[in-house]
Amino acid sequence: MSRDVDTDVYPPPTKRRRFVKGVVGASALVGLAAIGETAVDLTTNPTGEGGGVTEYYGIDVVGGPAPRGMPQIPVEIDDEGYLRGIWPPVETAGGGAEAAPIARTQLGGITYSNEWFQYCGVEIAPGLDPTADEDNYFRYAESSQYEWQNQEVSPNDRVNVDDFEDYETWGNGIGQDGVGKPAVATWRSTNVEDDAAAVIPVQLIRSVRVERAAQESRWLGASTQEGFIAILDKCTHFCCVPGYKIDPVSARYGAANGIYCPCHQSVYDPFVVSRQSFVAFPRPEGEE
């Protein structure tokens, strides 16, 4: 399934919130509770006005202009060791002319849905359609700034646990060794390889910090496996694609062990997970 970016992507008028390409909204983060080497934010104070507030769990933004953290993609591992993102069951919200599909479930006591990813234009990616026919496996991206990924795996291969056996010692000269082993991948994008704008980018990291935190956090216990955390890799500032340990310059901004966006120096901590929110603005007046 493909969708032209100029096509009206709104469902029939309903009381449900609307989403507009490029809108990132805002969040206020309070009440951080430390859990080992990771923190989980227990409260959210959403601000602003619009069509509705979407709450989600994501990594924390700790520097730069980004207004909020990037959302997590919950991870599961199949019997052969391949990683995939959890995609919720599809249900119908509303009724009659207002009925619309939504992918939604309870995970670790949290409501997880496809609405978590509806910003920066990702909401019109074919793979984010709740009913898209995708297998949910993470696949290695076409190009990577990680030497290990370019040498040891091939683009479009499914990501496997065995590829990360050295995660407790891996390093590339940026920041500390052994903090976490990364990869860049795609998700729910197997039918759009020829359309880069429709690909859903993912930052994967396997880390002992995630393993430890998952033992004490119900949410992280449900959304990570074997130390793997997956993040929708779209900076909430201007929708660039940041990276973990990809640029030596990141050290100037305290991001040598974090996720750094080289466009405007936003910094994210992949080992601090928060309950966050963004405000989805309503449909502009005059649009049907």
Score class of each variant (00 low, 15 high):
155 P>V: 12
268 Y>M: 02
238 F>K: 10
69 G>Q: 01
146 Y>A: 07
100 A>I: 05
94 G>N: 08
81 G>T: 05
125 A>M: 09
154 S>N: 12
80 E>N: 09
183 A>C: 11
181 K>R: 15
171 G>A: 10
106 Q>I: 11
60 D>G: 04
134 E>L: 04
107 L>E: 09
46 P>W: 04
126 P>C: 08
188 R>D: 01
94 G>I: 03
251 A>Y: 01
155 P>D: 04
250 S>N: 09
151 Q>T: 14
114 N>Y: 07
230 A>P: 12
156 N>L: 11
49 E>L: 13
112 Y>C: 01
142 E>M: 12
148 W>P: 14
250 S>Y: 10
234 K>F: 08
103 A>T: 04
247 D>C: 12
71 P>C: 00
61 V>P: 04
264 H>V: 02
251 A>V: 09
82 Y>G: 01
277 S>Y: 02
79 D>H: 00
164 F>V: 14
128 L>N: 12
90 V>F: 04
118 Q>V: 05
21 K>H: 12
243 G>D: 13
205 I>N: 01
226 E>M: 13
100 A>V: 08
26 A>P: 00
165 E>K: 15
170 W>D: 06
242 P>W: 02
257 N>S: 07
39 A>Q: 12
76 E>P: 00
107 L>D: 11
69 G>F: 02
2 S>M: 04
251 A>H: 01
214 A>D: 13
10 Y>F: 15
124 I>F: 10
141 A>N: 10
210 V>N: 07
119 Y>F: 15
287 E>T: 02
250 S>D: 11
189 S>D: 03
249 V>Q: 12
277 S>R: 00
199 V>T: 09
127 G>N: 08
153 V>W: 05
61 V>G: 02
272 V>L: 03
63 G>W: 04
137 Y>M: 05
162 D>E: 14
97 A>K: 06
102 I>A: 08
253 Y>L: 03
136 N>C: 08
197 A>W: 02
218 R>C: 09
73 I>Q: 02
16 R>Q: 12
34 A>V: 15
180 G>L: 13
165 E>R: 15
188 R>P: 00
160 N>E: 07
93 A>C: 02
207 S>Y: 15
14 T>N: 14
64 G>C: 05
196 A>S: 08
252 R>G: 06
32 L>V: 10
115 E>Q: 11
168 E>C: 03
173 G>V: 12
169 T>Q: 11
128 L>Q: 07
51 G>L: 06
236 T>N: 13
146 Y>V: 05
80 E>S: 05
28 A>K: 13
162 D>T: 14
223 S>C: 13
212 R>T: 14
242 P>E: 13
190 T>R: 07
106 Q>R: 13
222 A>V: 09
222 A>Y: 06
278 F>E: 00
39 A>C: 03
15 K>V: 10
115 E>G: 02
6 D>Q: 10
16 R>D: 05
194 D>V: 00
118 Q>K: 15
5 V>F: 13
168 E>K: 15
87 W>K: 11
224 T>W: 06
145 Q>F: 09
30 V>A: 14
187 W>N: 01
246 I>P: 01
204 L>S: 01
287 E>Y: 00
130 P>K: 08
134 E>T: 13
16 R>Y: 15
253 Y>V: 03
155 P>T: 09
248 P>I: 06
287 E>C: 00
44 T>M: 02
123 E>V: 07
206 R>S: 08
245 K>G: 02
123 E>S: 11
59 I>A: 07
130 P>H: 08
271 F>W: 04
108 G>D: 05
266 S>M: 01
65 P>Y: 03
71 P>Q: 01
